[in-house]
C-alpha cells in the first residue's frame, strides 16, 4: 500500500464496494457510486431541510438555498428568456450536482465524482441530446438554421456551415473535458504537492523544514481548487444554458 499513498493517481481508483455483474457488464456499487449518493443526499437534504420552515424572513441556511435558486433562475432567464423556465429543474440539478460533487471531492480521502471523464461526458451528452431533441421537436427542420448564420456571403456559406456543424458536434467534447480536466488536474497537483510534504518529512529535521514550502503550496492550491470547483460548475451550467437557448431560438445568433 505504501507506494499508493503518495501516488497522485491513486485517488482516482474505483473500488468495488458491492460487486454487481449483469450480462458481462460491471454495474458494481463503487466508491464513485457512494459519493454520487453522498452528493445527492447532501444536496437534497440541504435544500429540503433549510427551507422546511418556509420562513418569510429567511435564516442563513435558507438564504443559501434561495440564493442558489435565484442565481440559477436569473442565469437561465438571461440566457434563454422566459421560454427557458421549464428547463430550470434540469439546469438547477446539474449545477448543484456538479458543484457539490466538486466540493465534496476536496475533502481528503474523498472521491471526486467529476474527475472521471465518463461522468462529465454523460452530463454533457445529456445536455447535447436534450438540445437536439427539444430543438427539432420545437422547430422541426428550422432547427438547422442554427448552422446557417445570417449575413454571411454566399460564397463563404459552405465553409461557414461546415465550421458551425463541426463546432456544434464538438460541443459535448469541450463541455465535458473542460470540467473533467480541471478537476483531474487540480486533484493531481494537490496530491503531488501533498506527496512532497510526506516524502520530504521522512528525511529528518531538514526535510521537515523543507516540507513547509510544499505545505504552504498545498494550502494555497486548496483555496484555488475551491474557486475552481465553483467556477467549473458555473461554467458547465452557463454553457448548458447557452446550448438550451440554441434549441429554443436557433435563428437568434
Amino acid at each position: 500500500m505504501t507506494p499508493d499513498k503518495t501516488d497522485p493517481i491513486h485517488q482516482f481508483h474505483l473500488v468495488e464496494w458491492i460487486p454487481i455483474h449483469i450480462g458481462g457488464m460491471n454495474f458494481s456499487f463503487t466508491n464513485s457510486s457512494a459519493f454520487m449518493v453522498i452528493t445527492v443526499v447532501l444536496s437534497a437534504g440541504f435544500l429540503y431541510l433549510t427551507t422546511s420552515r418556509r420562513g418569510l424572513v429567511p435564516g442563513r441556511l435558507q438564504s443559501i438555498s434561495e440564493m442558489l435558486y435565484e442565481f440559477i433562475a436569473s442565469m437561465l432567464r438571461e440566457a434563454t428568456g422566459p421560454h427557458g423556465q421549464k428547463f430550470f429543474p434540469f439546469v438547477f440539478a446539474i449545477f448543484v450536482f456538479v458543484l457539490v460533487a466538486n466540493l465534496v471531492g476536496l475533502f481528503p480521502y474523498f472521491f471526486t465524482v467529476t474527475s472521471h471523464l465518463i461522468v462529465t461526458v454523460a452530463l454533457a451528452l445529456l445536455v447535447f441530446v436534450l438540445v437536439l431533441v427539444v430543438g427539432i421537436a420545437k422547430h422541426g427542420f428550422g432547427f438547422f438554421k442554427l448552422f446557417v448564420p445570417s449575413g454571411v456571403p454566399l460564397a463563404l456559406m459552405p465553409l461557414v456551415v461546415a465550421i458551425e456543424i463541426i463546432s456544434f458536434l464538438t460541443r459535448p467534447v469541450s463541455h465535458s473535458v473542460r470540467l473533467f480536466a480541471n478537476m483531474l488536474a487540480g486533484h493531481i497537483t494537490l496530491k503531488v504537492f501533498a506527496g512532497f510534504v510526506v516524502s520530504l518529512s521522512s528525511f529528518g529535521a531538514l526535510g521537515v523544514a523543507g516540507a513547509i514550502l510544499p505545505l504552504g503550496m498545498t494550502v494555497a492550491l486548496t483555496a484555488l481548487e475551491l474557486l475552481v470547483a465553483f467556477l467549473q460548475a458555473y461554467v458547465f451550467v452557463m454553457l448548458a444554458c447557452m446550448y438550451i437557448n440554441d434549441a429554443l431560438h436557433p435563428g437568434g445568433h
Partner: peptide
C-alpha cells in the same frame, strides 16, 4: 483510472440513478 472502461457501465448506471432521483 478515469479512462478505464471496465467501470463505465457502473458509473453510468449509478449516475443515472442518483442524478435521476435528484
Amino acid at each position: 483510472p478515469p479512462f478505464d472502461p471496465t467501470h463505465f457501465p457502473s458509473q453510468l448506471l449509478w449516475l443515472a440513478i442518483t442524478f435521476g432521483l435528484f
